[in-house]
């Protein structure tokens, strides 16, 4: 991560082509791990949590590097993250009220 960041600092706001490809490879590997976990067929909440974490890390990589949010103005980040938090909170409350979390 540090090298990517240094490189970005060198070349202005954006990471370079090599970093983009590295990120894409990481994304592909994570997807492979996800699918692998799926076919392990270990039914447990732990696996669900791991899958969720892996998806979130893919999400963060694309938003942070491909969409440059890591290097861009923080106000763009606010504009995106605040509704994200609002929506996730609303979704959790709704799932709780509809009994999906206790069913």
């Amino acid at each position: 991560m540090a090298t990517i960041h240094d490189h970005a600092a060198e070349h202005g706001r954006h990471p370079g082509v090599r970093q983009y490809i590295t990120i894409a490879v990481i994304l592909g590997i994570i997807t492979l791990i996800e699918v692998g976990i799926f076919f392990l067929e270990i039914t447990s909440w732990l696996m669900a949590m791991i899958l969720l974490t892996l998806s979130l890390s893919k999400f963060a990589l694309v938003v942070g590097y491909f969409m440059h949010l890591k290097f861009d103005d923080k106000r763009f980040m606010a504009l995106f993250v605040i509704p994200m938090i609002a929506m996730v909170s609303i979704a959790v409350v709704l799932l709780a009220v509809f009994g999906n979390l206790t069913r």
Partner: peptide, 27 residues
């Protein structure tokens, strides 16, 4: 793309996994 990352993770993988969402919630 990231919307699809969420849909693939939450709807496909966790959804078809047989993992009851309730288990995660209990956790």
């Amino acid at each position: 793309d990231i919307v699809w990352i969420v849909i693939f993770g939450v709807v496909y993988l966790i959804g078809a996994y047989g993992v009851e969402a309730s288990d995660a919630a209990h956790a």
